[in-house]
Design a protein around this nucleic acid. Structure first.
Length: 525
RNA sequence: GGUCCCAUCGUCUAGCGGUUAGGACGUCAGAUUCUCAUUCUGAAAACACGGGUUCGAUUCCCGUUGGGACUGCCA
């Protein structure tokens, strides 16, 4: 600790008198009146251009924990890094939240929810630290720090601004004024009182108490270039004054956990409960090693990928939710709950080891989900997707909406035996594309038994019921001395170009007599 | 290098000192079916290793190994 700075000097450093006293802030953002045990959570992404699947996972946990406890879930935009900010990023985040049904409730009373708009709060808090000698203006330039870092590395020391390397931590007021007069703009650093010889214990809801050496780095609280806070300081102020009870964040924050706890202690504030979630990983194709899903290498790291390809958002949420609350799967299969929102998520049970993203399992959730839809609902979802991502399909569907409905209704009448070959809305359309002449691809490889096909065509009547239809196939087979299945397969390939399809009779009914006759004739030519 | 986190079938996990180590996805086999999908039945498949503690360790402790994160005026 050092001598506190005078009021006037603090105002000069900050560019203005602090707007609030700590007491005023406490009053402005009072404790929330919520039922006992209610969680106040927040998803706090920085607007850097896209929504990461890991972010969605965290947001789901946040939302779920708040929702099931009768608490509040907030969305806070951490836009303190002006350099990395991307134009539409906030829109993308909000849109993703909306599409996945993650409803947040940003009560104005505790806002604003953009960190860039909360400067007054950060400055007021840092003014208090400055006055108490727990923070100081630091005039180290980027070059200075680079040199320090190099020297530290060469000497085998830990890098960072601490102890003797914290050049400006004991500047007198006069020295500070001289530098200010010089036109130098300081950042504001923590005057760390931590000693790495001591251990500090930090409590994580899943991992329990974690011991660290105390933090002794004079980390930056307020940046010199824009007067905005760093993450560490912003989260301290925000989660305190937003009255957050549970901070759900990635495990990459674990190393700075002691710093955060020390910060809370310095302020005399009660820290929230922390839940550090594990990463969502994949095996790197080149190195064969497990690593976090990354935006650059993995399309599936980006939530937009799932939207574009038409994955049911519910399925993605169930997959992710089951990672956080692994009993969900079983409870659902036993019919105890209908959706992830009905299943209680226990903070302590959120897994702490990194989970490999399992596309196959996601596919399973998606198949199950789509199979649970009514035909009308399925058609609606598919159309909605097409309208957003595929104009050609939109046109085709609009041309004859009933046709798509009939196609998708195939083998869906028996609830116990619904086909489960649809995974995404996009793939659903591809799966049934042969129903449209412009998409139908005749099979050139298959060696047709033209005799049999011709014989079938002779007897074909689209009005036949399923039994007489099948009887005709059987009689063709008998006449030609081949198996029933072979006749059916010839017909299947002639009509669809594929060797695997749903029920042939249904397909023919939906296609209609003209198309059936046309396609068989094309083969016979 | 330093600090911290993690370690059960291929994958996600249940387990919280005594279990035939359970489930799900995936895989394989069989049955049903005009093919596929579905449905049903079944199978293979795991406690990283080495020390302790204990009558007894998958479970507790230590170490090793392996994986991960952090080490920025980025979050």
């Amino acid at each position: 600790m050092r001598n506190g700075l005078s009021k006037d000097l603090i105002a000069r450093i900050l560019g203005a008198q602090p707007k609030y006293t700590l007491a005023e802030l406490e009053e402005k953002y009072p404790a929330r009146s919520l039922p006992d045990g209610a969680f106040v959570t927040r998803f706090a992404p920085s607007p850097t251009g896209y929504m990461h699947i890991g972010g969605l996972y965290q947001a789901l946990v946040d939302c779920k924990l708040a929702q099931q406890s009768g608490g509040v879930f907030m969305l806070r935009i951490e836009d303190t890094d002006t350099k990395r900010e991307v134009a539409d990023a906030v829109k993308i985040i909000e849109d993703s939240m909306h599409r996945f049904g993650l409803k947040y409730n940003n009560d104005e009373k505790y806002g604003p929810y953009y960190q860039s708009k909360r400067k007054d709060i950060y400055h007021s808090v840092v003014a208090d630290l400055l006055a108490r000698g727990l923070a100081y203006p630091c005039f180290l330039t980027a070059d200075d720090m680079e040199k320090i870092r190099e020297n530290q590395k060469a000497a085998g020391f830990a890098t960072g601004i601490y102890g003797e390397f914290a050049r400006d931590r004991d500047l007198t007021e006069e020295e500070i004024i001289t530098r200010l007069d010089n036109g130098e703009v300081p950042s504001i650093r923590l005057y760390s009182t931590g000693n790495p010889e001591n251990r500090i214990f930090c409590k994580d809801a899943v991992r329990g108490s974690i011991g660290f050496p105390e933090n002794n780095e004079d980390i930056v609280l307020i940046k010199s270039n824009d007067g905005l806070p760093t993450y560490h300081f912003a989260h301290l102020c925000d989660d305190h004054f937003m009255r957050t009870t549970h901070v759900v964040r990635g495990e990459e924050w674990l190393p700075s956990f002691p710093l955060h706890i020390q910060l809370f202690r310095m302020m005399g504030w009660m820290p929230p409960m922390y839940i550090h979630t594990s990463t969502i990983d994949k095996i790197d194709a080149e190195t064969g090693k497990q690593r976090k899903l990354s935006k650059r290498h993995d399309p599936e790291a980006n939530v937009a990928f799932f939207l574009q390809d038409g994955w049911p958002t519910e399925a993605v949420l169930e997959y992710l939710g089951n990672i956080a609350a692994s009993g969900y799967e079983e409870a659902k299969s036993k019919g105890q709950v209908k959706s992830i929102w009905d299943y209680e998520m226990k903070p302590k049970k959120i897994p702490m080891s990194g989970a490999l993203f399992d596309m196959k399992k996601l596919e399973w959730w998606a198949k199950e989900f789509i199979a649970s839809l009514s035909v009308d609902e399925l058609v609606k979802r598919v159309r909605n997707w097409a309208e957003e991502y595929d104009v050609q399909w939109t046109a085709r569907i609009a041309d004859n909406p009933e046709y798509l409905k009939n196609i998708l209704a195939i083998e869906r009448d028996n609830p116990k035996r619904i086909r489960k070959d649809f995974i995404t809305w996009k793939q659903t359309l591809q799966e049934v594309s042969y129903f449209w002449d412009d998409l139908f691809v005749p099979n050139k490889e298959y060696e047709f038994n033209k005799d049999a096909l011709a014989a079938f065509l002779d007897s074909f009547d689209v009005c036949d019921d399923k039994d007489s239809w099948w009887n005709k196939i059987v009689s063709v087979a008998t006449d030609k001395g081949i198996k029933n299945g072979e006749v059916a397969m010839n017909l299947r390939v002639a009509l669809t170009g594929r060797t695997n399809t749903p029920d042939l009779y249904s397909i023919m009914q939906v296609m209609g007599g003209d198309k059936v006759i046309g396609r068989v004739k094309d083969v016979l030519k």
